[in-house]
């Protein structure tokens, strides 16, 4: 049964219990042809453990919204609280710290570092965070995604599906509070995509991570607990759906 999101209810949510709180978020860019509004007054909140799909047509502002929520980009107006941290108040290094501590990423084009092996790609966020033991958890999670035998392979030696598994392993190895996924199956065939979706949700269930994903894939969107629909940079509906 769809209902309005937290922002629109009378009951104010407890910020401590929210994974994400987005208020009046706007993003405008200047182009030679004039100012372009990509996002306009978007607001909603997401609780810990939620799974949320952001859907909408191409150019509706989905990826921009994702970038702003993850602190990859800065908004023109409004604010984002990520696990209680006000991203707008932080500088780029501060946001990087928050990302390192609380955020995981899965990209459509995998974004594995071509010069690193599968194992090293997974070890990277742990190393950046300064963990003492980086190899054990990395090996363990790669085994879990079914790549225990291919630790020393470079991205170019792996298929698209395998690369995305490495990306999933890299995203989950830090046990992030929120995991953002940008079209995680966009570059994969249906079958492989399906397998990746299964893996994504099983890892998510296991770690209790909040999952926010941008997708065109209705099947994938349907797996999520909630769906945010964007149109022309505005939030048109926020549906809670039965999983």
């Amino acid at each position: 049964m769809p209902h309005d999101l937290a922002m629109h209810t009378k009951v104010q949510p407890d910020p401590q219990r929210l994974a994400l709180q987005v208020s009046e978020l706007g993003k405008r860019v200047s182009l030679p042809s004039g100012a372009l509004t990509i996002l306009d007054g978007v607001g909603f909140s997401i609780s810990h453990g939620d799974t949320v799909a952001i859907v909408g047509a191409s150019g509706s502002g989905k990826s921009t919204l994702l970038s702003l929520m993850a602190g990859l980009d800065t908004p023109s107006s409004g604010s984002v609280l990520l696990d209680g941290e006000p991203l707008s108040a932080l500088d780029e290094d501060g946001r990087a710290r928050v990302r390192g501590e609380k955020v995981g990423f899965v990209f459509q084009s995998f974004q594995l570092l071509p010069s690193l092996t599968a194992l090293e790609n997974v070890m990277l966020p742990l190393e950046l965070r300064g963990d003492a033991d980086v190899e054990t958890p990395a090996r363990a999670i790669l085994a879990k995604v079914g790549l225990g035998e291919r630790l020393g392979h470079y991205p170019r030696q792996l298929s698209g599906g395998e690369q995305q598994r490495v990306a999933l392993a890299r995203a989950f190895v830090t046990r992030p509070a929120v995991l953002f996924a940008d079209e995680p199956t966009g570059n994969l065939d249906t079958r492989t995509g399906q397998a990746i979706v299964e893996l994504l949700f099983s890892l998510n269930a296991e770690t209790g991570t909040t999952l926010v994903l941008v997708t065109h894939d209705e099947h994938l969107a349907a797996r999520c607990g909630r769906r945010l629909r964007l149109d022309g940079g505005r939030l048109v509906t926020g549906e809670r759906q039965a999983s």
Partner: peptide, 19 residues
């Protein structure tokens, strides 16, 4: 290009400016 990509990914994964 490679460096930009690697730098970008490392930033996304939480690498600080100093790192």
């Amino acid at each position: 290009d490679e460096r930009l990509l690697e730098g970008g990914v490392m930033r996304v994964l939480g690498g600080s400016r100093r790192q």
